[in-house]
Design a protein around this nucleic acid. Sequence first.
DNA 1: CCCAAACCTTTGACATTTCAAATATCGTCC
DNA 2: GGACGATATTTGAAATGTCAAAGGTTTGGG
Lengths: 171, 171
Amino acid sequence: MAESESATVDLEIIVQGAQEGKKLELRLWLRMLSTTKLISQEIRRRLRNEFGATLPQFDLMAQLYREREGLRLGELSKRTMVTNGNVTGLVERLEADGLVLRVTPDGDRRVTVAKLTAKGETQFSAMAAAHEGWLRDMMADVEPAIVSELWRDIGAVKSSVSNHLSGTDFD
Amino acid sequence: MAESESATVDLEIIVQGAQEGKKLELRLWLRMLSTTKLISQEIRRRLRNEFGATLPQFDLMAQLYREREGLRLGELSKRTMVTNGNVTGLVERLEADGLVLRVTPDGDRRVTVAKLTAKGETQFSAMAAAHEGWLRDMMADVEPAIVSELWRDIGAVKSSVSNHLSGTDFD
DNA sequence: CCCAAACCTTTGACATTTCAAATATCGTCC
DNA sequence: GGACGATATTTGAAATGTCAAAGGTTTGGG
């Protein structure tokens, strides 16, 4: 069969097809996913090493930190994008560590409100400061203008995705 | 004190400060994370409803699909960004479902190579086609030019992050 | 040849994750 | 005032996730 020259041509076709032809959205998604995993793992590792905390715990505490009155578990579930059943366990462990308090309000006994303890606030504010620094470090090589652009354009992606969900969910 | 005019100025400063001043990287990260979670959940839901499969299984099979010879578990672990111990369990379940085969090569008995079965290839190619369509749908409202731009710029983020990890990992 | 270091995978303890079913409470309608 | 539908959380089963320690195998000096 044909040998040296056709091999080169085939290679070019393959490369072109894979890199520019189609599936742009798929390629973007794969890159978003791997980048997010990379950053998550780094944050997880640092939270663990420096604070003995986990990322889901950090996320949950972040929501409580900006609502000093506390939040109902269902609301926590929505904000952290974590299922109800999951929130139950997370709050349980945080309460066992003395970082979070659970209260049932007088008016409605179906409800459980979680709020940070003083210890929880202290610990979280240290973690939050470190966390922000880690992100600045990790993204240090990216131009601020690009960061802003990404923030805006990813917002467009999020909005598009929200409008094309199979369920009846919104943001 | 000053009243009407200074109020306007203050407001601008506040808005500027909050939106563009600092913590840009943090805000980008939060948006990336929530967007990625949103898309992941949608894909998970559809994989489950339409194929009875899970996202980690899909990811693992995707790696094997493009390496018909199969991959060692350690290599699978790196490519899927999943820990070794986790790969063990995933492959076990996929093998129980007849989608994956485990082989120990003659040369080195420390190694386990996983490869797709014929059934696994058939099933994966159906899932992959659907998966690509879902992504196109979800991102339908985003301009192709923006998709390309995002792909490039997120690449820059990933590269920056890779250069600022606490461990000695590379991509 | 043998042993120690290096390599690959599994195991075990725990935390997180989803989904669906079960509980518990509230509000309301009749 | 008791049943019913809507709300809110918990529970249980199964899968995924991390990490560290333990198991085999191979390999390379001595």
